[in-house]
């Protein structure tokens, strides 16, 4: 990922537009997310504890995937002019360190008067949906 956000004006965003990116989840991602969120739950952090659960190994924080949604909105679609107003995300399958996830969003609604776009989002790992949801984002002038 580079640090330059795409810059879409409201007028250029149409219902049906989509974008996507992939992210390889590393040990460092989970460590840094624990530090930022303060969530050091052993299911995320302790290999021996996680190994004794039904998951068998450490599970990536669900809200790390939520953070990738933030990346999607702020960096890809709408990008520069985005202001995230509402995010709903449902976690469908556990994700483990070392997996590569794909975040894909599609514009499903656009309100010109409020400058709000609705984006349906799906996060895939190995072609399987691991999380899905939607966001509403305002596209600033």
């Amino acid at each position: 990922m580079n640090n330059v956000s795409k810059d879409r004006d409201l007028d250029s965003i149409l219902v049906g537009d989509s974008d996507e990116f992939t992210h390889h989840i590393t040990e460092n991602d989970v460590s840094r997310f624990s530090l930022i969120s303060g969530d050091y739950n052993p299911l995320h952090m302790d290999e021996s504890y996680a190994g004794g659960t039904s998951f068998g190994k450490r599970v990536v924080h669900g809200m790390f995937l939520g953070a990738l949604v933030s990346q999607f909105v702020g960096m890809y679609l709408p990008g520069t002019k985005a202001l995230l107003i509402k995010e709903m995300i449902e976690f469908k399958k556990p994700v483990n360190i070392g997996e590569t996830v794909k975040v894909k969003g599609v514009i499903t609604g656009k309100s010109t008067v409020t400058r709000i776009v609705e984006i349906d989002l799906k996060i895939f790992s190995n072609d399987s949906v691991v999380a899905s949801g939607y966001v509403y984002a305002k596209v600033l002038d």
Binding site: I85, K86, G109, S111, T112, V113, T114, I116, E118, Y136, K138
Partner: peptide, 24 residues
Amino acid sequence: SFNYLLFIAELEKEYCITLTMDEV
């Protein structure tokens, strides 16, 4: 204020209409 904007967006989508700023 934010929730009102979301409501207007939902209203437009539900009834397939477009509101003007004057109407809002």
